[in-house]
């Protein structure tokens, strides 16, 4: 695992990736700090983090797009499979390297509140609390990016899907207001999700029975619940969209609440997507 970690870090620092990622993050947080802390003279650094979280939409996919896709394209994944290193360790090594690249600009950012506090009253607890949440949320997005990269061997496609997914997540709370809150609308949405899920399962496992099975069972359950108790579906879809939003949970921290459930949510997202990435790598061995 250490070998993979070191190797990945060398790749990031030999290419522009790590520098571009760091520079973008610093520039964005820098602009935020200019606008909020310097120009508007607000002493809350956490607002800056809330503002600059949008930069993840672009920089996370750019950072993670090559992590597995490129290995496949260059056929170097064969080497990883033949080495006496388990796929879990490969994914963990790669993920830790990404976190390391991500931590470096954060260390620079961590100095800002201290610097600002020299010139006025800065409530450091919320600043650093939000910074921790900012780090863990970014880490969760990176885990999502790793998984997306493991689905394709085309870096560009991985980046594109990554941007779409994170952008959707970013706006999901605002979008939730526009989606249908009626029971029928939610049921229809679940139908579409069932079809998509079936398609994804089919794509991943090439197992028709499993894909159709999952799809049809989900649809049947939806129909059953719909006829038994229609009210269960009311407002469900917007609710789910709000709950799934990672960015929405960061706002809680920005507003001064250190929300442990959010931290646990972020950590579960990390574990879930890393697990999926390992499965995605393993699956290639079986196909």
């Amino acid at each position: 695992m250490i070998a993979i970690l070191k190797h990945e870090l060398r790749i990031y620092f030999h290419s522009l990736t790590a520098y571009v990622f760091g520079a973008f993050l610093l520039v964005f947080v820098g602009i935020g700090a200019m606008l909020y802390n310097l120009q508007a003279a607000v002493s809350n650094f956490e607002f800056v983090l809330g503002f600059s979280s949008v930069v993840f939409v672009v920089i996370v996919p750019v950072l993670t797009m090559r992590v597995i896709a490129e290995e496949r394209k260059q056929k170097t994944d064969q080497l990883l499979y033949s080495l006496p290193v388990s796929t879990t360790k490969v994914i963990l090594g790669k993920y830790l390297a990404l976190l390391f690249v991500y931590l470096i600009p954060l260390c620079v950012i961590a100095a800002y509140p201290v610097i600002f506090s020299q010139y006025g009253d800065v409530y450091l607890v919320t600043s650093y609390g939000s910074l921790i949440a900012f780090f863990i949320m970014g880490a969760a997005l990176i885990a999502v990016g790793v998984f997306i990269s493991s689905l394709t061997e085309n870096q560009g496609l991985a980046a594109g899907i990554g941007i779409a997914v994170i952008l959707f997540n970013y706006f999901s709370v605002s979008l939730a207001e526009y989606v249908s809150a009626t029971a029928f609308g939610t049921a229809a949405a679940i139908f579409i999700i069932a079809v998509l899920l079936g398609w994804i399962i089919h794509h991943l496992t090439k197992n028709n029975t499993l894909a159709y099975g999952v799809s049809l069972v989900l649809m049947a359950v939806t129909v059953a619940v719909f006829f038994v108790d229609e009210t269960k579906f009311e407002g469900l879809l917007p609710d789910i969209m709000k709950k799934l939003s990672l960015f929405d949970r960061l706002d809680t921290f920005v507003n001064g609440v250190f929300d442990m459930t959010a931290i646990i949510y972020f950590l579960s997202v990390i574990v879930f997507f890393l697990f999926l990435s390992v499965q995605s790598l393993e699956k290639r061995r079986y196909n």
Binding site: R10, I11, H14, Q74, K75, T76, D77, Q78, L79, S82
Partner: peptide
């Protein structure tokens, strides 16, 4: 020790 059909090399190293 295994050498696959396409040598698994990292081209930038």
């Amino acid at each position: 020790g295994y050498l696959p059909e396409h040598p698994p090399l990292y081209m930038n190293e």
